[in-house]
Structure formats: C-alpha cells, structure tokens
Write a protein that binds this DNA or RNA. Structure first.
Length: 215
DNA sequence: GTATCGATGATCT
DNA sequence: GATCATCGATACC
C-alpha cells in the first residue's frame, strides 16, 4: 500500500447527478473549449478527477499535429467533436486529447487532473509519489487512468468515459504551451490558479485568458 | 529548487 | 535521418 505523505489536495467537488457536457460545448474554438474544460471532471472506468490543465491546438496552428492535414496518426482529430484523440509521445507515453473546434482538425490536450475518484487505482498504476502528481502531465494522466491508443476515437459521452460539467466558475491562468518548438508564443495553455496538481507552474507570464472571438 | 540527459519508437521529411 | 504536444533519474545549487 502506498504511503500517503501528507500532501493536501483541494477539496473534492460535489458531483450532483450524472449530467454530461452538451455536445455543442465542443463545436467552438479550441482555445475557448480548453479554457472552459478547466473545472470539469474526466472519468475513465470511474477513475479520474477534475481537469486542472489543458492546451488548445487547431488546424491553422503550426504546432498542431493537424497542421499538414489528415494522416494515419491524427485521423481522429478530423473526426467528430467530443471524441478522443490518443497518440503516443516519444515512443513511450500516451497523450489524451478531446476533439473539438468549429472546423475539423482541432483538439484540446488534457495535461493534468486533480485526482478525486478511485485514487487508490491511480496509485497502483503509477507507483509511489505524491497524490497531487499522479496525473500532473499528459503521460502521467494516461498512465494513472490506464488510457492508451485502444481508445482513440471513442465517444467521450459514453462509457467507459464520462465528462462532467464544472460545478462553478474557476480562476484560470494562461501561458505558452509546453514542449513545442513552433508557435511558442501562442498562449494556449490553461490552468487552474493555485492548483498543486499542475504539470508545471504558470510563471510570471501567467495571465487571465484572452479567448478568441466567435468565428 | 533548476539543468541536463537517456529511454524509445512512430511519424514525417 | 530528424523530430518529437514526455518522464524520471541524476547532478548540482
């Protein structure tokens, strides 16, 4: 049994009924969706928590996998909004995206969760470490939830997935995306202010988001 | 606390 | 052949 080291996670949100995000939620600009996913909850087979960090990518974005059109890997990005796009990173890790956007080829990378549901299952998959870091990063998140490429293209409104609305307004910061070499100044990383579950802190450049206008 | 580096393999030029 | 939407270990401050 993994030792609990005394790190204190924020209070768990009160999830009311089994409500789900409206399908129209996803058919909007990726940066707006990424901003509003902060505070929503993601579950896979009942394991998961509150989304605290996201990044937006779209078809006009040189940093996006979709920038040069559909390929075998990014096929799901050009499919239905509200579905999963899962890809392998550095030959080692899986990364989980939510397809969205007003045109094909956009998605939101879910980078971190605040663990809430079935934390013991996440500890078992990820081994020792602070609970706040169980899902602090896209590769860690997929490892903790047991997500992999077998679920690429799945409808996130159906089991084994669940995507639940936020229970209130959130204080969201934004800044440059992590680990990219193109469009490095586009501030399309979003995070819950003050969360100990972020993959990395938002620096001095952390700002309130300037979300794009409607198309 | 930050900096650097190796793992590891699909994808794309 | 180069490039990765990463992570964990290690070294050092």
């Amino acid at each position: 049994m993994t030792q609990f080291r005394g790190d204190t996670l924020p209070a768990a949100p009160l999830i009311m009924a089994a409500s789900s995000l409206n399908p129209g939620f996803f058919t909007r600009p990726a940066d707006l969706v990424a901003r509003e996913l902060i505070g929503c909850s993601l579950l896979f087979h009942g394991v998961g928590g509150v989304i605290v960090e996201t990044e937006a990518y779209d078809e006009q974005d040189p940093a996006s996998h979709s920038a040069r059109g559909p390929t075998a890997r990014n096929r799901s990005m050009f499919g239905a909004p509200g579905h999963a796009y899962l890809y392998r990173s550095y030959g080692l890790h899986w990364c989980f995206n939510i397809v969205c956007g007003v045109r094909p080829g956009a998605a939101v990378l879910v980078r971190a969760l605040q663990p809430v549901f079935e934390i013991a299952a996440m500890r078992q998959r990820r081994g020792d470490g602070r609970d706040a870091k169980l899902c602090a990063g896209p590769g860690r998140l997929c490892a903790a939830l047991g997500l992999d490429g077998a679920f690429d293209g799945y409808d996130l409104s159906q089991p084994p997935f669940a995507l639940l609305p936020s229970t209130g307004s959130q204080h969201v910061l934004t800044g440059p995306r992590i680990g990219i070499s193109r469009a490095v100044d586009v501030p399309w990383r979003f995070g819950l202010a003050g969360s100990p579950c972020l993959s990395r802190p938002f620096g001095r450049s952390g700002r309130l988001p300037q979300v794009s206008a409607s198309p």
